[in-house]
Structure formats: C-alpha cells, structure tokens
Design a protein around this nucleic acid. Structure first.
Lengths: 191, 191
DNA sequence: GGTTTGGTTTGCCATTCTGGCAAATGATAT
DNA sequence: ATATCATTTGCCAGAATGGCAAACCAAACC
C-alpha cells in the first residue's frame, strides 16, 4: 500500500470535509451541487465508503470556501476554544474574540450569519462608532445608507455606524470577523 | 465528473512527480522502492494511466524529498483585491485591510508569516498601544514578556504592546488577522 | 552492425471500485 | 402522528486496480 508509516491523508481530508461543512451549516446537497457531484457520492466520500480523489478537491474546496491546503494540509483543525462561548441573535451566532478589556466599548467577534438573515428591516439602526468587517467565507450583503453591496471572501469593509447600516447573508451562510465599535445600547432606528 | 471548471489537480501532480524525479536524476525503481509501490504502478501514475490518489502522496513526496504541497500545488488564491497592495518585511507579508481612515493610528492586516520567522530577536520591541491577533491558519508563536505561547487556528490573543513582545511562526506558515494599535515609529528595544 | 544494460512501458486478468438513481432510514419541526 | 428535510444504503453494469513478467526503448560498448 502506498501509505504505511505516514499519516492517512485521505482520511484526514474526509474528516475536514465534514467538519468544515457542518461548521458552516451546509448540507450535503448544497455542497454536492456546488461541487458538481452526486449527494450520495459526497456522503460516501465523507463517510469513507468511496475513495476521495485529487480531482474531487478543487470543487469541494471551492464549495466550502476554503483553500485546497485546508483540506490536505497538515495544519490543525479549527477553534474548539472559541466555540463554547457563543451567543445567537437575529440570525447570527457571535463568538466573542476579545475579553472585554480596558479598551472600552470595542468588541471583536467571529460571526456566523445564517442564510436566512438576508433582508434588512424597514428601519436601519444608527449609532455612534465605527464597524469593521472581514469576510472569511460566503458573501456578505451590506446595506449602507442607499447602497446595497456584496462583499466577497477576503474583502474588508469599514464604515461609520452613524450611517444607517445593516449586514446579512447574500446567498448562503457567511462567516466574518468583525470589530464592532461602540456596542452601546443607545441604538436608534432611522427612517 | 468532479472537476470540470477547475484545474486538473491530479494531472498537475503527475507532471510534477515526473519533473521532480527526473530533475533529481532518479529512476522509477528508486522512487517506487522508497514509496513502497510497484514500478509499473509508478510508471502508470506518472503517465496518467492509473489514478493518483491522496494516499499515494505522502510516500511519493517523502521519496522525492518535497512537501506534499509541492505536489498538489498552490491552490487558487483568494482575495485578488487585497493581494496587490501587500508589502513584505521581516519574514512577513502584510495585506492592509483598512484604508488609513479617520480612526487614527490603528491598522488591520492580514499577515502571512514565513516559516523562517520562528525565533525572536535578542531584544523585543516595546511601544504604546494594544495588539490583537486572530489566527486563521498555522500555529503562531507568541513571545510576551517571559511567556512563550503557541496560538492555534481560531484562537485569539490580545495584549498591551507595552509588554516586550514578538510573534512568528511555530512550525510552518501562519496566517493571521491582526489589529495593530499605535503603529507609531516610537518603537524601543528592551532587554 | 549486434549485443548488453538499465530504464520504462504494457499485457494480462481476478478482484475491487465507481457513479448515479431510487428507495430506506434518521432527525426535526409541526 | 405526520410532513419535511438530511443522510445513508442497495443496486449493478462498466471502469479501475495491482503486481508480475514480458516487451520495448535508448544509449553505451564490443
């Protein structure tokens, strides 16, 4: 056999496949469609009942929004630590990344946005401060005043929260890193 | 087929296999032996008459003395937008994520740390401000005063830059999102 | 020329694996 | 209980596998 003393690359890739998919809250069907393979095939790939080949990788990596290396590479899995302290509201799950430190009303979060959070309320919140977002996975829909933007993975937006604003999912789950300035309660509605 | 619009990963791996082997002046037999596979199999792998699977890779990479990544190659790079404005220094590549805005001396970066940047200088920098790091990939080595920490993907660290500090790679390339406060030039060395 | 000597490719074939549909099973919500 | 969605499994004709031995191909050397 080709792989004896070494690590089981294929098995690990399989495990990550499932890990990442479930973390993103996606179904076999969704990924299978995006990767142009059959659901049953994907099921068997993940569960080890079918050989995962090299040419499966690009499609699957793209479908999951990760790099090829994240599937085959030797790097460690993801954040079990941050996981426990999450809270959910308004179709988003927030993992606080900062210990509420001396730096005042500023918070950093890893935010997982539900595909369902895809249209803004009639009135957009306005408050003091500045928000900063970095999109890790998925496409973010950002409404800023009159503008309705789409933000792609790897892109960044930064804006004053005095502008009426809202963000959500464009067409699937989204993961962002967010620095939210002035998390205060003095949030007003607008228009 | 699993791979249509994407690139032919398997074909590329095959090509590299042969390229590297011939460049090293090694024979099929030698590599086959080291990788514990049959010569005929290796021949067919290289010439595309047999499917190259994930579990072939570690053995072959080891036999050729290259990393797994060198065979499966650089994945499609993300974020072409941010990519162009990078700058490199001290074994790190920085992609600015903030437009130097009104928020003063605060900068957000996506930082790629070279595996070579793995040991701190004799004197650690000290300056005003606060740094915040979120590890995306790889393991970060963080030296903070007397502590020598390892930070895993998904984990976060936040510290005052008045503490003597340094960060680099632990055992491979690292990608982090960093918010560096007070990027000022008034950096001093310590001890 | 003809032969020798690596190096590489191919014939063979019992066994295993593949892909993709449809149907079964599991899990949740109503 | 029932409807709905997600995941797993049965099926099976056709394709791929592995590994031995034989064939092929060059280049070097009588």
């Amino acid at each position: 056999m080709a792989n004896q003393t070494q690590e089981p690359v294929e098995a690990r890739a399989r495990r990550r496949l499932r890990e990442i998919r479930t973390e993103l809250g996606l179904t076999l069907q969704q990924i299978a469609d995006r990767a142009h393979i059959d659901v049953s095939t994907l099921s068997r790939l993940e569960s080890g009942k079918r050989r995962l080949t090299l040419d499966h990788l690009p499609g699957l990596a793209a479908a999951l929004g990760v790099t090829l290396e994240e599937l085959v590479g030797p790097s460690v899995p993801r954040d079990p630590r941050v996981r426990s302290r999450s809270r959910t509201c308004d179709g988003m799950t927030l993992w606080p990344l900062t210990h509420r430190g001396p730096s005042g009303g500023l918070g950093a979060y890893r935010i997982q946005i539900d595909p369902g959070r895809n249209s803004p309320p009639a009135q957009l919140p306005v408050h003091d401060g500045e928000d900063w977002l970095y999109v890790l996975d998925g496409r973010l829909r950002l409404v800023l005043g009159d503008e309705d933007l789409s933000v792609e993975p790897g892109e960044v937006v930064q804006f004053s929260t005095r502008t009426p604003h809202w963000f959500g999912a464009l067409d699937g789950p989204v993961t962002v890193i967010a620095i939210l300035g002035a998390q205060g309660e003095r949030t007003h509605l607008h228009r």
